[in-house]
Computed example of a mutant assay.
Amino acid sequence: MKIFIKIFTIAFLCFFILFSGLVWSFNYYMKDNHDGSGIVVRAEEEDMDNLEPEDIDILMQLVDESSRINFILLGLEGFRSDTMMFISFDPDDKQMDIVSIPRDTYYPRVGYDGPGKKKFNAVYGDHGAAGVKTAVSDLLLNVPVDHYVTVTYSGAEAIINSIGGVPVYISHLMDYEDPYDDPPLKIYFEPGNHLLNGKDGVKFLRYRKATPGSGGLSYADGDLGRIRAQQEFMKNAIKKTMSLRLPSVVTTTFRFVRTDIDLQDAIIYATMAVGMELENVNMVMLPGVARYQGGTSYFFHDLQETRDLLLQIYGYEEEETEEDVEEEIISIED
């Protein structure tokens, strides 16, 4: 019996050490390999005077009390983030809120003075995924970003294929050609219902404008129109994924992304999300307006509306005052 216990103990320790080593290696090599340099420092502070201090305090209190897990999803095009989505998941209510951040969002940084460097999609190239986490938290009034997930075009293609494609309805002719891309890019979709495989899905996500004279239509509001199309694609992909075994999908697609989420945590998060209904997935865009500054087009986010959006995500319910009740009574009587 003593010999059996001794052999079992040795075998268990060997297995534990081997398994731990494999998990450590997997988690280590899953990290984003573009570190960037320096710390993200915003060059111009937002005008905080129009935000009441108690509003910020309320938001931070809600954040502290919440069990929400926040991610930033980055779709990469070289050293720029072509797609950025802030994803907040509430495991208690099985609620997911997704806020798309326009790539042209105005975000000036100390030491980066070029017009293109003042766009949010330039942060990744200079500071890496960890730097984007910091910048997104700064943009969203210090709401924490727990994890990043980055995916390249080839990774997105593989993930779409792994779930059997994504159904979409295309309302207008898409026709765009870029012979100078590597490899040359050709996007062509007739209007109607499509089940897009990985290759075509990536093309759909990249489409923004038509080649002049091709007969195709561009999104009327440029990148903002493309974001709405991406959100619809994402929602359909989530719906498709929910019909599958979610933890299995996560472990399958995990190898196509780079992230600071450990494999063990990813499986836990996926298990928490099992049973989440599609109506509990809410997709919005960062509030703001697009306009030119110094000859360059930027998207300027609205601080007040961003605060309201975050309060809504974190479940803030404003208490009615006696004045509010009196106004409602007067309105009903009128």
Rank of each mutant, 00 (worst) to 15 (best):
K2A: 14
I3H: 13
I5V: 15
L13A: 12
F16D: 10
F16Q: 08
S20R: 08
V23L: 04
S25E: 12
Y29R: 10
I39M: 10
I39F: 09
V41K: 04
R42T: 07
E46D: 11
M48D: 08
D57A: 09
M60Y: 11
L62S: 09
D64I: 05
I69P: 12
F71V: 01
L73A: 05
T83K: 05
I87P: 06
Q95Y: 14
V99A: 07
D104Q: 03
T105W: 09
R109G: 06
G114F: 08
K119M: 12
A122E: 15
H127M: 06
A129C: 10
K133N: 13
S137M: 00
N142I: 02
N142C: 01
H147W: 00
V149Y: 01
T152D: 09
Y153W: 12
Y153G: 06
S154C: 11
G155D: 03
E157K: 11
S162I: 02
S162F: 01
V168G: 00
L173Q: 03
L173T: 02
P183I: 09
E190P: 03
P191D: 14
G192T: 14
L196M: 11
N197H: 12
G201V: 04
K203Q: 15
R206P: 13
Y207F: 12
G213N: 09
G216R: 03
A220M: 07
M234L: 07
I238L: 09
T241S: 07
R245H: 15
L246D: 09
T252R: 12
F256N: 11
R258L: 09
D260G: 01
L263Y: 08
A266D: 05
A266M: 03
I267N: 05
I268K: 10
Y269G: 08
M272Y: 15
E277M: 03
M283L: 06
Y298A: 00
Y298D: 00
H301S: 04
Y314T: 02
Y316C: 04
E323G: 03
D324A: 06
D324Q: 09
V325I: 15
E328M: 10
E328W: 14
I332D: 15
D334F: 08
